[in-house]
Design a protein around this nucleic acid. Structure first.
Lengths: 115, 115
DNA sequence: GACAGTACCTGGCCTCACACTATACTTGGG
DNA sequence: CCCAAGTATAGTGTGAGGCCAGGTACTGTC
């Protein structure tokens, strides 16, 4: 893929990842490694662990997520992430902005002088 | 508005601005100051000149836009920006990614194990 | 016991949006 | 005549986010 386009897609992902992480956590609590797999099912959001752990830490620091540990039958303990009330509220606000943004972009074109 | 949300919206804009600029230039050549006014009509994309000129320079450097000067009846000469062929092609690619991305995000949720 | 898979995390790099600032041309008021 | 306000373009510094590369550690298999 073209360099410019690759880079653009990276930029476009900014903010969107946070949004998607909160969205997948809306229905169920998940652990980091699993979130990566979830998002990987969306072609345009192929990410690695190095990308989402910093995001998860930040979201926890901001009070949008809380965590608890649980032992795993295969590998080290899993850290589950769960939406807080503040997280749920924020997700609602973000959804509004997202809707406005996508609709706005889709309608973006030169406003004609007179019809 | 909440600090976190404000910042998130800023991040979300990344990449989207470039896309919108190319989009508004698809129908007609415009000069920088006018592009700002065009995009300001979209509530979520309120930007200032300081934001758009670096983007325009970059897009021109990348060969997606070309420019020509034209005198103005009110103020200094205007620099009009126009899509190149490469710009048109790129816009097409970006549109595909944008569509895939927005649809992907809207479908983002926990994939159920078994129904 | 070496390897692959699972699971978590950090540091440094790059790019972008934005606030701030500077420049320059035109028009109208004191 | 100068100064303020509106038009128009441009550069710099800061801060934040995504990502690559790398590191740690636990479990089961050949």
């Amino acid at each position: 893929m073209d360099d410019f386009l690759t880079n653009w897609v990276t930029q476009l992902r900014k903010g969107i990842l946070e949004f998607c992480i909160l969205k997948v956590l809306e229905d169920a609590s998940l652990y980091g490694y699993d979130i990566v797999r979830q998002l990987r099912t969306l072609e345009v959001l192929v990410i690695s662990e190095g990308t989402i752990y910093p995001i998860l830490s930040r979201l926890r620091r901001e009070g949008l997520l809380k965590t608890y540990l649980e032992e795993s039958p295969e590998g080290p303990a899993r850290k589950y992430y769960q939406l807080t009330n503040r997280g749920k509220d924020m997700l609602g606000e973000m959804r509004k902005v997202w809707t406005a943004m996508t609709q706005g972009v889709d309608n973006a074109r030169r406003t004609k002088g007179k019809p």
